[in-house]
Design a protein around this nucleic acid. Structure first.
Lengths: 413, 413
DNA sequence: CTGTTAGCGCTTTCAT
DNA sequence: ATGAAAGCGCTAACAG
């Protein structure tokens, strides 16, 4: 069978405990003993048995990152930022990088450099693609729980269906109860369930008594204390979608637009609703009527934006501006307008949301709302690693910044 | 502590062995016993301890998918397809979906429907973002090995550095040796190492003797046999980048273009080289000279395409066409041309590679080479699951299909 | 600083 | 069809 700790110990002429200590670097070991062990590890090409150590330590180094659509850069950027922070190195060598390490003393153990098979402290950051599907979200949560993930980060808008929301909240509480750090990033806080019971299952007092109690092992050595504790509930880093959307539409209104079409995201998701609410709030604040036909729902992708724009123009040719729920859809809107021979922003202004990288150099550059994807993702990563303390109340909100660019202008310019 | 198998067993008044058998569904259990167990599982909200079962069973349900850039739809589509197949359901509810299940009898166990916490057969498909960084690729491979992943899928081009290639090959052989199924998707086959030794480490006959032997446990019941075996070496699903690129450039040549610029991908990667070789082969075949200044390297993204196009035009204003190494870069090229007041394809034709979803409805629609990302990804997923037998020789190549669209035309039209 | 040892929770023969 | 019991490989007390 595979090489085990015992084999390494035998070869290094030490006990398994010593090998374990060297590998985990959490306990003093004589320098030359360490060297012998590392040598043996390397010679034998020993690879730690993750499951075994996870079983013994009651936690695995898995960090799960749930995303709604892995093919969408919005999530790619978020996930990449989280991952960089979790893996402790610079992830994608992206300019203006996420690699803003918190300058903790680099404790790279000597000897393990050339053959890193043994670094036990490495976390495995993995992204799970839910495809926006509630069942898959739940399945992933369960699987990560099963793996005793050390942290789970949920990104992006949540589905608003009450039953599902309740189920997710329950799954998250179970995770937290199991000692897994849970971070929500770009999603509103979990609303504490009203106690809806799983259908067909009798309430079991035993279970409920358990929820909320944290039986988490604390580190026995090296007095990191506050950092080590697992927050009693999920930490949330939310985006102020409502406010951002409102400022965006207000920008359009201040430019003189009155007939504004809105390409909303898929119905039943928090992000969709909040952005739409912000848009409507802006209109309402200025006494501008907002007939229902000026809003069309669709997916958060280019094709949906294209179709929605067609539909909006068909319904109302007087539109002078179209706001899309995200940049990708906005680009679809632009394409549709161009195909109809309309100029942007000459005939119709267009705005998006998110400020993804391609938005700035689209033609024309897209007016949008910048979300601190990189920053929020990195913070989520640090929170997931327990490297940063939770914000007060376990909730922090990120404001979106209006990026007024060439795709919006005064109407009929 | 958390609920354990023993707790469930006690509540169901059976032994832990029975509970295990019910959960794994791999051994006959009386119907009403099964029901009692399931009931107990549900009542207790029992969640299998993954590490424990992985330790005992010597394999975890983890399936790792390595991608070079998680924010690039190319990888998103591939990863999504793999994942759908691994999770056995329809993943992203994308049209024309990857959900083409091989019609195996649906063995959804009764009772586990409402509370799926216990389905042990579920695999956890996770994507790992290497950011194109060799070290991270190796790290992930090690981490997945450590977790005793049941399969690993590597997607996209490989780095060509000899040392790194050797290291990756070694890591893959270790994985295969540990019983992990390895699938390469969109990357050339691993070249069997020439035996370069790790620097500074004396050859250890013991280690080498181990490589290649497969000590894989076989299912003891339920006669799946051929399916269960782990191939002795990685399975490869390669894309014919060279051929595709060649046909693409030939298309341009047949249109009458002679001065063709090429925006290549990052140097030192197989995909970059193969596509460039195909391009050059086409030119050579038609006796068209290809001065070095007509090729510029850059990342596989829009910004790089933009910059590269600027540079190409600066170097040679006589270009009538620009081929980019992928669609994303091609869009950057288009933007750059437009910004210089050039029309597409009137003044300059532009072509990409991959045929990502946005390419068809770009303005103008992009001529490109379609790669069967969905299909290859799905097949990789099935191979990873052992649900499909490997192609002869463990290698299959996918041809790219030329998609001639509006962005290319006769020069000076 | 290092060794001994008792589990962690599950799977899997081997009995019955 | 079910139970008893022996590990799987590692970690963390507890000794020394």
């Amino acid at each position: 069978m595979a090489v085990t700790l015992a084999d390494v110990a035998a070869r290094a002429r030490v006990s398994t405990a010593t090998v374990s200590r060297v590998l985990n670097g959490n306990y003093p070991v004589a320098e030359n003993t360490r060297a012998r062990v590392l040598r043996a590890v390397s010679d034998l090409e020993y690879v730690v048995n993750g499951p075994a150590s996870a079983l013994a330590a009651a936690t695995s180094g898995l960090v799960g990152i749930l995303v709604n659509d892995i093919a969408d850069p919005f999530f790619g950027i978020l996930a990449s930022a989280v991952q960089s922070e979790v893996s402790g190195g610079s992830g994608t060598p992206r300019a203006g990088g996420a690699a803003t390490r918190t300058g903790e003393g680099d404790t790279r153990r000597p000897g393990s450099a050339s053959y890193p098979l043994a670094r036990t402290d490495e976390k495995l950051a993995v992204v799970c693609n839910t495809g926006g599907c509630p069942e898959r979200e739940l399945t992933y949560l369960t699987l990560l729980h099963r793996q005793r993930a050390s942290a789970v980060v949920l990104t992006g808008g949540a589905v608003e269906d009450a039953v599902h929301a309740e189920a997710v909240a329950a799954a998250l509480m179970r995770l937290v109860g199991a000692g897994t750090r849970v971070v929500l990033c770009g999603r509103p806080p979990v609303t504490v369930g009203t106690g809806a019971q799983r259908p067909g299952v009798a309430p079991d007092p035993h279970v409920h008594a358990t929820v909320g109690h944290l039986h988490v092992r604390t580190a026995s050595h090296g007095g990191l204390f506050a950092q080590r504790s697992v927050p009693p509930r999920p930490v949330t880093l939310a985006f102020d979608n409502r406010g951002g959307a409102r400022r965006l539409t207000e920008h359009l209104v201040s430019l003189g637009h009155r007939n504004i079409g809105y390409v909303a995201g898929p119905p039943g998701r928090t992000t969709t609703r909040h952005r739409l609410e912000g848009h409507r709030a802006a209109l309402a604040a200025h006494g501008i009527p907002d007939p229902a036909h000026r809003t069309v729902h669709g997916a958060y992708d280019r094709a949906a934006g294209y179709d929605a724009a067609q539909e909006l123009l068909r319904r109302d040719a007087s539109l002078t501006a179209v706001v899309a729920a995200n940049d990708t859809a906005a680009l679809g809107v632009c394409a549709a307008l161009r195909d109809r021979g309309l100029r942007i922003p000459g005939d119709v202004s267009v705005a998006g949301f998110d400020d993804l990288p391609f938005s700035a150099d689209a033609a024309p550059a897209l007016t949008t709302v910048r979300l601190p994807l990189q920053g929020a993702g990195a913070r989520a990563g640090r929170l997931a690693m327990g490297r940063e303390v939770s914000p007060p109340g376990e909730v922090a909100a990120y404001r979106g910044e209006l990026m007024a660019r060439a795709s919006t202008s005064v109407p009929y310019s």
